[in-house]
Design a protein around this nucleic acid. Structure first.
Length: 268
DNA sequence: ATGGTGGTTGCACCA
């Protein structure tokens, strides 16, 4: 048996319902971790998702910005969230899934701050917030991820490796790919003894992207992508990793999200 | 040099 877990920044769940339905029909995921749902909880299209089979839902949204949700065919044994950087801005949710004979799996869904326009803590508060957020995640992972069967997924808004962006030299001073951010991401992995699932299946010398921006003309056709979406598995979960797929096809559908689904399959 | 949201329904804010 296996569990198919997906992370997808949908850039508004209400705008992307048809895409989610089509993706679910074609890829048959068991659990959806969504980011940037951009909707208050009372307006979340819960019944539409339930009709797709995701009757177990935990949602944390707000008006217009951010918002995360975990939608599942399987029941949760527990659900939780944390407040990061003292801001309750709806960037994190966690659930515990039964996970089979090897024991439960703790699944965490993150939407890390984008970081604003300039990679300068003094000139740009949003960049400082992002760095602080990543540091807080690392401190948390050091005490929480080790020794647990834990999978952390989400839009981490960092492309940490050279082949995680379409042009390293050109983008190394751009927010999302600076050494400051890449170091913090590496620290997060080290702190939690976490495996980068994307690079576990696709070696670092090959390009791997999950996001193609709207603003750059023909970014998809030219493959001007970034790997901003990630799955990180704790050491006790390492041997259960079966498969990873970046579902690039959705980016070419009509009116797409700028992010595509990241699918991880775990043996249970 | 696009897309989503909410609302000063034209435009500011966010990514």
């Amino acid at each position: 048996m296996s569990l198919r877990i997906v992370s997808w920044n949908v850039n508004s769940i209400r705008q992307r319902l048809d895409h989610v339905a089509r993706f679910v029909a074609e890829w048959q995921p068991d659990v959806l971790c969504l980011q940037e749902t951009k909707v208050r909880d009372e307006n979340f299209p819960a019944s539409d998702l339930a009709e797709m089979g995701f009757t177990h839902q935990v949602i944390r949204g707000q008006k217009a910005y951010n918002g995360v949700a975990i939608l599942s065919r399987l029941p949760f044994e527990a659900q939780d969230h944390r407040i990061w950087c003292s801001k309750d801005d709806k960037r994190h949710l966690s659930v515990t899934l039964a996970g089979g004979s090897a024991g439960p799996i703790e699944l965490h869904n993150f939407y890390v701050p984008s970081g604003g326009p300039t990679p300068d803590r003094e000139a740009n508060d949003k960049f400082g917030h992002k760095l602080d957020f990543l540091e807080e995640m690392a401190a948390w992972a050091r005490v929480h991820a080790r020794g647990r069967r834990l999978l952390l997924v989400g839009d981490l808004n960092v492309a940490p490796l050279e082949n995680d962006v379409w042009n390293h030299k050109r983008l190394v001073r751009s927010v999302g790919h600076t050494p400051m951010e890449s170091e913090r991401m590496a620290n997060l992995l080290e702190a939690g003894a976490l495996t980068d699932v994307g690079r576990h299946f696709v070696p670092p010398d090959q390009p791997l992207y999950t996001w193609w921006g709207y603003r750059f003309p023909q970014s998809l056709e030219r493959n001007y992508g970034w790997r901003l979406d990630h799955a990180l598995a704790s050491e006790p979960l390492h041997d259960a990793l079966v498969r990873m797929e970046v579902v690039k096809a959705t980016r070419a559908w009509e009116k797409p999200s700028d992010h595509v689904p990241l699918l991880v399959e775990i043996a249970t």
